[in-house]
Design a protein around this nucleic acid. Structure first.
Lengths: 212, 212
DNA sequence: CAACAATTTAAACACTTGTTTTGATCTGGC
DNA sequence: GCCAGATCAAAACAAGTGTTTAAATTGTTG
């Protein structure tokens, strides 16, 4: 068992357990025992529990943002006019699918993202913003260009509305799907749900402000 | 200091601290010391930490759902045709304002609601569903009537998209508002944000599924 | 092979957690 | 005024937390 082995076994276990129970609810002993490594390994390889949490996000977010960036590069280079639906498609299908392709569970990723916002972990939010803020701003910029004439502040809020709908829905996907199965005898796959989310989010972004 | 005094002092402190840091991150010692009561008081009056958490939600949700129900009753009795925007207005302005009127912070309430979904507290979700599920179903029923011809499963998902946008945005209101202030030199009040949310959410609920 | 560094292991450390216990104190009804 | 029942207070409880230590083991390199 080489070093990389131990490190990635810890990351695998932590990723699953954090997504299931949250950060403080998951002890290092639970992580190391399900990973089959010694308790001290976390502090040896990562330094502290905080740094382990950041490492879990790093392993998720780096390929995600790289895939998204490459996808956007390709489309921009091809001179495509990027509509709202296409941008959201890149974000959802491209980025999310890239994780699924690696055998990683995309909704686990979404749960973790939601937790980064909800749980009281200042260091995490700071880490994510400093590390991936640029990718975020690029996407937001392209999206606002696809919404000509929109008031900047309105756009800003709508972007958060969309993020909320996405993160909340996908992070509770299992629970929502369970109710759906019970009440409607129907079920949804994640890609199907994303297909539902794209037009709904697009409509929200484009809503004109006159009504109401 | 009578019993009610101690009980409500504990609830006040717990409400604030839970909203700030989450449930597991808030110890009973922190709660009791900021409340100025003895540590054992929580277990004496509430039984356990779990039951304290539920009591915090009970104090929030009961007046909230009652105000909402009364508002809906009044409108239905008056024979009003309930449009999507009006229903959302009842939910947001009515319910939320009722809490604000009592001097309670509505966004604190939203943060707690978000946590009930995000944090790994099975007992809480079960408690909320069993206690307030009916109010939820009534509102959902009225909302679906305002969206004639919508496919039930589509409606179901869109409802969750809307809940996500609402809960996420309002529970992170402070953080979002801080960025807004920095980047745009603008700021938003909660009522303003709700005014932005209503048309956006309505547009999302009504989006036709043909596009994309 | 020898020597040095990297890694793993078991044990202990210092501290915090929710809960319980055991008296003390207060309160309202006779 | 007194006495039962409710409330409060201090202390202790057992269990769990992240982290550190120091020795044993493994891996690598000259």
């Amino acid at each position: 068992m080489t070093q990389t082995d131990t490190v990635s076994r810890i990351l695998d276990a932590a990723e699953v357990l954090f997504a299931e129970r949250g950060f403080t609810e998951t002890s290092l002993r639970t992580i190391t025992s399900t990973a089959g490594v010694n308790l001290a390994a976390v502090n040896y390889h990562f330094g502290s529990k905080k740094e382990l949490i950041q490492a879990v996000f790093e392993r998720f977010l780096t390929p995600f943002t790289e895939t998204l960036a490459a996808d956007l590069d390709r489309r921009v280079a091809a001179g495509e006019k990027l509509e709202v639906e296409e941008l959201l498609g890149s974000l959802f299908r491209g980025g999310v699918a890239s994780l699924a392709a690696e055998g990683r569970d995309p909704q686990r990723f979404m749960r973790l993202l939601g937790m980064a916002y909800t749980q009281h972990q200042g260091h995490l939010r700071r880490y994510i913003v400093s590390r991936y803020g640029e990718s975020y701003r690029r996407f937001a910029g392209l999206l606002s260009q696809a919404l000509p004439g929109i008031d900047p502040v309105t756009f800003y809020w709508r972007l958060y509305f969309m993020l909320g709908a996405t993160i909340f829905t996908l992070s509770s996907f299992d629970a929502i799907d369970a109710i759906l199965r019970e009440d409607f005898d129907a079920q949804s796959s994640l890609p199907e749900t994303l297909d539902r989310l794209v037009p709904a989010a697009a409509a929200m972004l484009r809503a004109d402000t006159e009504k109401s």
